[in-house]
Computed example of a mutant assay.
Amino acid sequence: MSQLTMSFAIEDLGGWLGQKLLPFWAATGFDSQTGAFIEKLDLSAQPSSEDYTRVRLQARQIYVYAQAHTLQLFPDGLALARGAYAFLLEHAWDHDGEGWFHRLRRDGTPLDRTKDCYDHAFMLLAMAWLYRAGGDPEVLQRAKRTIAFVDSSLGLERDGSFDGYTDHAVAEGEAIPLPRRQNPHMHLFEALLALYEASGEQEWFDRAGRILDLFKLRFYAADTGQLTEFFDSDWNEMAVEGALLREPGHHFEWVWLLHRYGQLSGDDSVLPIMEKLFSWGWQHGIDRRPGGVFGAYDELDQTGRVLKGGSKRLWPQTEALKACLALTERCGDPTAKAGSEPLLKSMFTHFVSFDHALWQDQLDGDGKMIAPAIPASSLYHLFLALAEVLRVLPDSAQS
């Protein structure tokens, strides 16, 4: 499948990434005066004037440009990633109490000092790839200080055993914030695998294993193949906005992450879980209506009923593509292998274009754009999915 049934070849993706997408977001998407990335662009491709940036956005962009440097897609990526990391280290690291703040003004002034688990997961991912790209020992040491903070301030125990993390740090004696979510745990799992791969240190992999155990116990329903999203303090599922939500994008994201775990560990026992998650997401979460936009819905309920009017963000499309690639690589799954091409074709028809470096971030059920801006945070999903296309599909076409 080196040549798709469309106007470009797989090999063209590398040129588009390295010559159009990454340079644009390194220039228009970066504030050279502050040394930080831009949070979002308006629909005319101008940087938003809103005076804030999220630490998770900076972390995601650091990851993208550090990996792009490592893959030799963007030689200036390491310098850019180091600059944004320096900005965060100066302004977002709590020099008095450890951990990373949630939001800053664009000049770096702390705007929200909340210590958020999701933010810390992406900071760990950013540091994993920054260390892998540049080898700076301070970065790895900061990652160790970060995970120590996560354990001490966000970690929970039940009967003396690990019981996951709370969404953000609270004062001693305060109730943990609800609902509890699987999502930050998923991204911690991603970051811990990346840190293990970057450093070779077993401790990171062992920590990832704890989250995998929690996934099997709390998040994943083996009888249905569904991934539960929201919980009360005792890990009972909670309805949100009157529904028991299922996100196809997260089903697909876990498929790819379990594949990465299997690659690093040699553990094939994750394959049946991958297959069940993919099967449920692919059966219920993909729009196949004649005349519709082929791709992954944003939200369903536990019965598979489509919610939010059938809207589709860009990021679930990228995760569906990654899941297809993961099962293609792991076991040659015919459904997954056949799914890569229409997903990629639909993405480049409805969400992104070879003509420019922008994207439509969300479409309604009729395929009309409804996103009011172009969030820079989607670059993380798009870049990783296309990097996986470049890595997997040429080899699978020859096998």
Rank of each mutant, 00 (worst) to 15 (best):
T114M: 15
E172R: 12
Q182C: 03
Q67A: 08
S152A: 15
D76K: 10
A376N: 11
Y131E: 07
A191Y: 04
G108V: 08
F162G: 01
A222L: 10
L344F: 00
L363I: 02
D112F: 12
Q302A: 15
I273A: 02
A84H: 03
R103Q: 14
R105P: 09
E275A: 11
D136M: 09
W235M: 00
L393Q: 14
A79G: 11
E197V: 01
Q283M: 09
G15P: 02
A191P: 09
K368Y: 13
W25A: 02
Y65L: 01
Q141C: 11
F74G: 00
G108W: 03
L111V: 08
L300A: 02
Y220F: 14
T109V: 14
D333F: 09
G29Y: 05
I286L: 02
Q33G: 15
D136V: 03
T70F: 06
S161G: 10
Q72Y: 08
E203R: 13
S199F: 11
D267R: 00
D136R: 07
A373C: 12
G134F: 02
R218S: 05
K216M: 13
D301G: 04
A66N: 07
P75I: 05
R288M: 01
Y131Q: 06
H91P: 05
I10F: 07
D51T: 01
A336E: 10
N236L: 15
T303W: 10
P137C: 06
G292H: 10
K216L: 12
P75Q: 03
M347L: 13
S279E: 15
E388T: 00
A171P: 07
W204V: 01
P290I: 06
K345W: 10
R113D: 05
G134Y: 04
T318R: 04
L195M: 13
S48N: 06
G310I: 04
V170H: 14
L244Q: 09
P375G: 08
A59D: 07
K144I: 00
W254E: 06
A26P: 02
S377L: 02
A133S: 07
T303Q: 14
H259W: 14
D234I: 01
S199Q: 12
